[in-house]
Write a protein that binds this DNA or RNA. Structure first.
Lengths: 228, 228
DNA sequence: GCTCTAACTTGAACATGTTCAAATTAAATG
DNA sequence: CATTTAATTTGAACATGTTCAAGTTAGAGC
């Protein structure tokens, strides 16, 4: 059940070659059409060997996610060091998510369901996904903190986590998007990022103070029980 | 692939007995632990016979949902004819959802993932789920329209659909909720329903007019491409 | 170089969702 | 009642994720 970390050169090679085969096949054929036997076959190892390094097919998906996250982080590095406007940073970051994931669009649907499953070890709120989740949330922390926007402290505290959630929402929309070039998703991104920045600015309006406090308090309360 | 409607007394009986066995076993053992062979066995029919009436195990889940929806609708009927306050109607309705679903809490997790899968015929945004989805949205229409709240027309138009989405969000929270008596979910319901009503009232504040129009326009735009 | 142990590898076996061609049943038709 | 036809039922067969006991390999300790 526990993931066996390779303790040998040979083991490392095996793990790497299995993972690479899995990534290739997922991308080529999609999640469902990629059998564990095919992965093992392409990797040149036996079926049982794959299970030595990856306790289940789902665990290979987690690596898949890590892979796309690294692509994404690399893609937005220039933007984050150049752009200071919050809306620009946010829009660029989220656009880069769907652009990075575009080659995996056909895969994404079936993967999403395994990930949304609360009883799956991979679900985004669970323990196994924590390291990756923390990385993504930290990335949004950088998006927020590197901007010249002046954001109230109580909002700034929760914002990265909420943007991570927002990103998942966009991805879910993107999965369904059949428009050419995924234009509809890009439109929605432009509109929502603008809106988010606008709402943050509005949060200081006196009449909204009360609701703002309540919303933030509630989110904090909710988050503590789940993503901790 | 297409669902075979029974055309005989005998066929109707078979379908009913299979469905009943499935509902029982799902509730007793959960989705994953209930095998198609067990369902067939308990129903006293052969494995192949089950597939004659239900193209897949997932299709049995849809019937499970319909079942809980009917329980829910019956449970809130008295409330809807008595209570006129929007917050009260909303709170009571959503509370009734989680209370109705409580016996299925252990099942719900694994079911959720099959339903969230965009490639599944059962995903809430898809065609197969439309009849049931329409019923639920209509129910929220009744929650809204039967209240004495004065709601701007543009909001009233979208509100039932958004409340349906809100209900799904609550259910997703509820699935994770391990607190005794599922108290945390009930708390969140109380807070969020209040908040929703408050935000609807705030939507008329002049400074929010612009954002309100944009948000509603965007939601309308999004919804048209998916839940149509 | 030999031995021993832990790491690694293997493939058969199992469980379960799904398919399908053949057998059976029931009802309509004459 | 006999025949025909469509509906229904069946269980074997298949694909695939997963497990596991047994075999193989490589490196540490001497």
């Amino acid at each position: 059940m526990a993931i066996a970390q390779p303790k040998t050169k040979r083991g490392e090679t095996s793990r790497a070659v299995i993972l690479q085969a899995a990534l290739d096949l997922f991308q080529q054929r999609g999640y469902d059409a990629t059998t564990m036997r095919a992965i093992a076959g392409h990797a040149g190892v036996s079926l049982g060997s794959s299970y030595h390094y990856f306790p289940s097919k789902e665990h290979l998906v987690l690596e898949f996610y890590r892979h796309t996250h690294e692509l994404h982080a690399a893609a937005i590095a220039p933007l984050l060091s150049r752009e200071k406007d919050l809306a620009g940073r946010l829009r660029g970051t989220i656009r880069a998510v769907v652009i990075t994931c575009e080659p995996f669009h056909t895969v994404a649907g079936s993967i999403f369901s395994t990930v949304a499953n609360p009883s799956s070890p991979l679900n985004p709120f669970g323990a196994a996904a924590k390291p990756l989740r923390d990385e993504v949330v930290a990335l949004y922390g950088e998006v927020v903190n590197g901007s010249d926007a002046r954001i109230p402290a109580d909002i700034a505290e929760m914002l990265p986590l909420m943007l991570w959630l927002y990103q998942m929402g966009i991805l879910y929309f993107w999965i369904f998007d059949r428009s050419p070039g995924r234009l509809r998703t890009l439109e929605v991104i432009d509109e929502t990022t603008d809106l988010i920045v606008r709402l943050i600015a509005l949060a200081n309006v006196p009449i909204l103070r009360g609701s703002r406090k309540r919303i933030l308090g509630m989110i904090k309360n909710i988050v503590e029980g789940r993503v901790s």
